[in-house]
Design a protein around this nucleic acid. Structure first.
Length: 495
RNA sequence: GGCCUGUUCGUCUAGCGGCCUAGGACAUUGCCCUCUCAAGGCAGAGAUCACGGGUUCGAAUCCCGUACAGGCCA
């Protein structure tokens, strides 16, 4: 039975890297008819926030990475909310609610002598660290509390001195584990120190809580970023000393910024939330993220719905880090937008049209008309947020681009052309793209001027700019009354 | 500083000993189409497979070293 998990710390937004890890876990689960579990690792008391939990869940939901077990949420218009209930038989899925379990396991380990109390203070550790630095050897806890005498131990315990719990790491041999991406890996034990499993506050450390949860949640495969690779031998050691079966690992390479350094804010948007509000489509995001560090043998780029879950495998995951390429993401978004059927595209862009004040559910314009307008520029939308920007002149008076006015409307003959066309278009019936075009071309031919000398001023007059949809369809869509009005206004423009 | 992992066009990647005079995609260049901008079509440029040694009849592919990058512990 395949069981995988995504285990974010709610200390910030859902990062691109986290989203990719979640995606790979999700795809692996779906591909193998396994279970995808969401666990919240909130043991960092100071940095964890409920807002982060909400944000992360919302991001996952937006990407449609639906988890089979974990916190239950309900969605309303404004976002997702925790219900306080959970799905799955292996909860709770918040680590802070699993303290009793960690304590129980720690007690057991202590009684078996596999861990020990360490009373070293921060100052003690600091001096060890300095010492190590001075003698240019790597810092490693020296294990001085490892063999405290019974008496000393009892004394310290009686006086209630604060202590941590440390794992008794074997000093010889090696620890190996299976990694589906890197192959079998082996680490020398003597390089690992007696790491802390419970802090003096009584809160378990990441390495400990993670192992306990992965065991009790029956996780079969741990798929995570390779920044955890160095932690893995410690965790394997814990599994072993508890007599638990060790899961199979898969360490994903990191995602880097375009300059090759770790992806961070200075590279631009790094959270899923930002991409959502920028106007990216979740399916484009998923597709792009899937291809960061994974590929098929034929380098397929675009995947139909469900196809990723069908084809995904860990064997084709890249070992080396991948640079995040915003340009390719954008291309992918364009591809997906174009692939959307018109009604679907309209539904998706309604929030943006509404945001721009071009639509609302009461005053319309009717969706039929919106769809027709949107179709005019469909191949030009890179982001959903481009749509209102590109189409604004259909909904409001054009904002004249000064350069366009200077270059086109102030050109020789432009006023004459517009004046003539005003008359021509005024008597045109029917007012269709076809009739408008025939009329404009005939006019140019009669006057022996270039088509462009007619078309360009018309375009700027009705839309305010030099770039836009097919001129005649645009004019038809605007309608005779509006077009005549706009040409008149353009003729009044200060020169 | 130690350890770990990695290194194929600018970028994402295919490749798992002969099919590679290295394939695809994004970006890029030119041309065509054209009422603008796009889109589309066609053509092109771009990687001595990090470097140096081996192993082999034969290596991008296997082994060793070096360099560089990233990660973890500090």
């Amino acid at each position: 039975m395949i069981r995988v998990r995504f285990a974010p710390s709610p200390t910030g937004h859902l990062h691109i890297g986290g989203a990719r890890t979640a995606l790979f876990n999700f795809l692996f689960a779906r591909r193998n008819r396994g279970t995808f579990i969401l666990r919240i690792e909130d043991t960092d008391e100071v940095r964890s926030t409920p807002e982060s939990v909400g944000g992360i869940l919302e991001g996952l939901r937006w990407l449609e990475l639906d988890w089979d077990e974990g916190p239950e949420i309900e969605a309303d218009g404004s976002g997702v909310k925790l219900t306080g209930r959970e799905n799955g038989d292996f909860g709770p899925y918040f680590q802070m609610e699993r303290q009793d379990l960690y304590r129980k396991i720690a007690t057991q380990l202590l009684s078996e002598g596999k861990i020990y109390r360490c009373y070293c203070t921060a100052e003690d550790l600091e001096s060890m660290r300095r010492h190590a630095q001075l003698s240019r050897i790597p810092f490693k806890y020296d294990g001085r509390c490892r063999e405290l005498s019974e008496d000393a131990m009892r004394g310290k315990a009686a006086s209630g001195e604060p202590h941590v719990l440390r794992f008794r790491m074997p000093q010889e041999g090696a620890t190996q584990f299976k990694d589906l991406i890197h192959g079998d890996l082996s680490f020398e034990n003597n390089l690992l120190d007696d790491f802390i499993i419970v802090k003096s506050s009584g809160i378990p450390t990441y390495n400990f809580a993670c192992v306990v949860d992965d065991h009790f949640m029956k996780i079969s495969h741990i798929i995570r970023g390779d920044d955890h690779l160095s932690n893995t031998p410690r965790q394997v050691r814990l599994f072993l000393s508890l007599g638990w079966e060790v899961p199979i690992f898969a360490h994903l390479s990191m995602i880097l910024g375009p300059d090759g350094s770790r992806l961070s804010k200075r590279h631009g948007a790094t959270s899923v939330e930002e991409y959502k509000s920028l106007g990216y489509l979740p399916e484009a995001m998923r597709n792009y993220l899937a291809l960061l560090g994974w590929s098929t043998s034929d380098s397929q780029q675009i995947f139909a719905p469900g196809e990723l879950a069908q084809k995904f495998d860990l064997e084709h995951c890249q070992k080396n880090p991948a640079a995040f390429d915003a340009q390719k993401l954008l291309w992918m978004n364009v591809t997906y937008i174009r692939g959307l059927a018109d009604p679907e595209l309209l539904e998706r862009s309604l929030p943006w049209l509404e945001g721009a004040g071009f639509w609302n559910s009461k005053t319309a314009p009717p969706k039929e008309r919106l769809r027709a307008i949107m179709r005019l520029e469909k191949e030009k939308y890179r982001l959903l947020s481009d749509i209102p920007k590109l189409l604004d002149f259909f909904f409001q008076e054009p904002k004249f681009d000064p350069q366009a006015v200077e270059k086109v409307l102030n050109a020789e003959n432009a006023s004459q052309v517009l004046t003539d066309m005003l008359a021509e278009l005024g008597k045109l019936d029917p007012f269709t793209a076809k009739s408008i075009e025939e009329n404009a071309r005939r006019y140019a031919a009669d006057k022996k001027i270039k088509n462009g000398a007619v078309f360009h001023p018309l375009r700027v007059a009705v839309s305010g700019r030099t770039q836009g949809p097919s001129l005649f369809e645009m004019i038809e869509m605007l309608g005779q009354t509006v077009v005549l009005g706009r040409i008149r206004s353009a003729l009044q423009l200060p020169r």
